[in-house]
Amino acid sequence: MQPNAVVVRAVDRLDADWAAVSGLLRDYHLQTEREKARHGVAEPGGSGAGLPARYQAEVDGPASVFEEADVVVAEKDGRAVGMMVLQRSGRDIEVKRLWVAPAGRRQGVAAALLAYAREHAERAGADGLRLSVWDWRADALGLYRSQGFAIEPSWEARERLVCLRRPLP
C-alpha cells in the first residue's frame, strides 16, 4: 500500500471500529443540524439542544440501527476519516451518511468512498446508485455530478433535499 493511500472497507459486525463510526456519525449529524438551523430547515424531533432522537440513536448504536445495511469506513494513515452507509432501495443502492472529516477532505476520500459504492452496487446487481443531499452543499453536489450522478425527481418529503442517481452499466 502506498503512503497516504485511502483504504475503504466494510465494517464487520464485530469490528472494533464502531467507535470511529459513531464519532463520524456524530460529527456528520451535528454539522448537518447546524447547517439546517442556518438555512431555516426545521426537522421533526429537533430541539436545538442536541440531535433529534433518531440521529442520536445512530450515534449511540450504529451497528444495530444499520443492521440491514453495509457500513463502510475510509481510512488514511490508519485513521478513520470518512464513512458511508449503503442500503438497498428497490433496484438501486442508496448512499447515505457519506461524510469525510475535515482533516480528510480534498484528498480523494469521498471519491474513494463513491468508487467503493459503485463496485458494491455492481456486485449486488443493482441498476444504479442514488442519494440525496441538501441544496446548499454545493461542493458535494459538484462532486456527485463529477462522479456521473444526475438530478432526479425527488423521492424525499423534506424540502431542499436534492435527489441524484447514477445508472450503472
Score class of each variant (00 low, 15 high):
108 G>S: 07
141 L>S: 09
132 S>M: 02
98 L>G: 14
115 A>K: 01
110 A>M: 00
110 A>K: 02
117 A>L: 09
93 I>W: 04
86 L>F: 06
137 R>Y: 05
139 D>F: 14
104 G>Y: 03
114 L>F: 01
117 A>H: 08
108 G>R: 08
107 Q>A: 08
140 A>P: 12
121 A>F: 08
93 I>L: 05
125 G>H: 00
127 D>V: 05
136 W>C: 04
94 E>I: 02
94 E>Q: 10
104 G>P: 02
129 L>M: 04
86 L>Q: 07
104 G>F: 01
106 R>P: 00
99 W>M: 01
141 L>I: 15
87 Q>G: 09
94 E>G: 06
102 P>D: 10
113 L>S: 12
119 E>S: 12
91 R>W: 13
104 G>N: 01
127 D>I: 01
127 D>F: 03
128 G>Y: 07
115 A>N: 00
139 D>N: 15
139 D>R: 15
113 L>A: 12
135 D>S: 14
111 A>F: 00
131 L>H: 11
88 R>F: 00
103 A>E: 11
95 V>E: 03
91 R>D: 15
117 A>S: 13
118 R>S: 13
114 L>M: 09
102 P>H: 10
120 H>P: 13
138 A>L: 07
112 A>G: 15
91 R>Y: 15
97 R>A: 01
101 A>W: 02
116 Y>G: 14
103 A>W: 10
97 R>Y: 02
128 G>C: 09
121 A>V: 07
91 R>S: 15
131 L>A: 02
90 G>D: 09
117 A>T: 06
94 E>N: 06
105 R>E: 13
102 P>L: 06
138 A>H: 07
128 G>S: 07
103 A>T: 13
83 M>T: 12
125 G>T: 00
111 A>S: 11
94 E>T: 07
